[in-house]
Design a protein around this nucleic acid. Sequence first.
DNA 1: CCCGGAAACTAAAAGGTTTTCGGAAACGTA
DNA 2: TACGTTTCCGAAAACCTTTTAGTTTCCGGG
Lengths: 334, 334
Amino acid sequence: MAGRRATINDVASLAGVSIATASKALNGRQDVRDSTRRRVLAAAEELSFQPNALARGLLSGQTRTVGLLTSDSVGRFGIPVLLGAEDAFGAGEMAVMLCDARGDAIREQHHLRALLSRRVDGLIVVGESTDPRPSVSRNLPVPVVYAYGPSDDPGDVSFVPDDVGGAAMAVRHLLALGRRRIAHVTGPDDYKASRDRAEGLRLALAAAELPQAGETLWGGWSQRWGRHAAEMLLMAQPDVDAVFCGSDQIAAGFVEAARERGRRVPDDIAVVGYDNWEVLSTETRPALTTVDMNLERLGRTAAQHLFAAIDGRATPGVHRMPCRLVIRDSTAPA
Amino acid sequence: MAGRRATINDVASLAGVSIATASKALNGRQDVRDSTRRRVLAAAEELSFQPNALARGLLSGQTRTVGLLTSDSVGRFGIPVLLGAEDAFGAGEMAVMLCDARGDAIREQHHLRALLSRRVDGLIVVGESTDPRPSVSRNLPVPVVYAYGPSDDPGDVSFVPDDVGGAAMAVRHLLALGRRRIAHVTGPDDYKASRDRAEGLRLALAAAELPQAGETLWGGWSQRWGRHAAEMLLMAQPDVDAVFCGSDQIAAGFVEAARERGRRVPDDIAVVGYDNWEVLSTETRPALTTVDMNLERLGRTAAQHLFAAIDGRATPGVHRMPCRLVIRDSTAPA
DNA sequence: CCCGGAAACTAAAAGGTTTTCGGAAACGTA
DNA sequence: TACGTTTCCGAAAACCTTTTAGTTTCCGGG
């Protein structure tokens, strides 16, 4: 812990110039003689001078800082988005202030005020699910971008994964492998994510003019539910040759139970998961083919569009970001 | 997006008082008449005035903001620590600036400078493993606290999980259940975490004057290695009655393979994991008894001690935080 | 009515930086 | 020498708030 920090005033005195000249020298401005600039830089080095961002921000009105407001960062989805955003910002000179509201609207308001009083240049709001969430942007003095969970105000800027497209892609993959009796096991039906993925399945099957094998089985997001569903499904529809699962957890449970019942994956039943949660998807036997929502990219994109919005070039609307199919052994061709 | 933000000047004009009076009224200071205070507050409300934290910080030298520097926040361990810290801070009025250095020393320096120039009041450094890491605190103008991964400078303040104690606790639990032939499967031997946990096992066995069943099996942190180790162990030491695994991933692989080989868990073999990574520990069959490192609490504690250090009451040294045994079915009494 | 003291209020400074604009110096040209 | 031009430098204002050190107002007592 050193003493008082050096100011530009100290640097100027040491270099024997005025603070105006010191400022110009330090910021690489033109009208300062080369020899003078060197003297100033040497002085700054010697005092290990670091410009005070508060003073700078006070003057310019720009803090080069953004707020990241999450409802549930402990969740599976907030983190990669957060990292992607931090990535995009860190590349430049931006800093990120992180606030976790834990799903509490009061706490969210509280954090919002704290961020605004610190004069952040913009805000990213990360949802905890893909269900729309209340807009926070009503006449806020800074631009806001929503990631993962969209705002319910279409005038806001939101980036969400294209779950319909991702699910359709997964199902087309199964169809391309020659599977024809495709079942669907997924999460609770009050999640937009479940409904979107079921819709993607429906569209892909409709395009192929094939029926779905049995009704969609709605349940929880857990491995336990995957195992349970497997038992029900293999009993009720013994001839299914593929299952599209709404999450990797469900898929992991499913393959485990199927395996125990003597069904070979992928020979008898091909299985596709969702999320590409690597601790599950690469560790099941066989490893899971799964849909990756590209959340880090989504976070990066959101951050880039926040930059654009800060520059006055906002892009309102809900933007659906494409997913990516990661093919592993659970759908290997026979 | 509103126009220019209101300053205390606007509030003062609207209320018909001086800036000084407005400031006092807004900050609840005494020498201002009640009727005046009400006028000022009304004006502030009307203009939705929010004090500029930059100006305030510039004057007071306190930003009420701390930096959180992580080497690998995508890791399993940084996140809970981060959340705990954010929790402790959020309770007050602190904001957290998050920077991820991705294990790159250059980037770390870069972020460090960015944080210091923004005049954070303090710093938490979160390690990516429990191995000591280079100190970052050499004559820094603000206090620093290390969490999860300690600093290599004993003069710094570090908080780490007590892996030796956690492992010993797990093994004592097995001994209390009457298990006598306890084996150990764990991660790479160049992780301090592995070595500490093996040491805890050694101590607990030594205290009970029992030998370890076979040599410690060092491998990776993966489920795959857990399965592989199970096969080796059940072949070489068919009579083991308990296994202490260095992580939940290893334990999950172990119980799966043991189950397939017809060994009943916990009847034939009791299994204990480490980490309490819930997606694994509660979803295996049977659910895993495991050691929880209390990382959120560790993060909270680190944050609280950072407060203390900011107030000039630092507590140097490496502080080992106790772990907690979470008992589930994989060690249920026979 | 005047005075003293308390209560309420205000002007001004401070905090560190950037920027504007005017001034000085240096140099070349008539 | 006078003048214009270019180059370099510095004084001062601006950003917004808090605090200090007055100054004014108010009120009761003599």
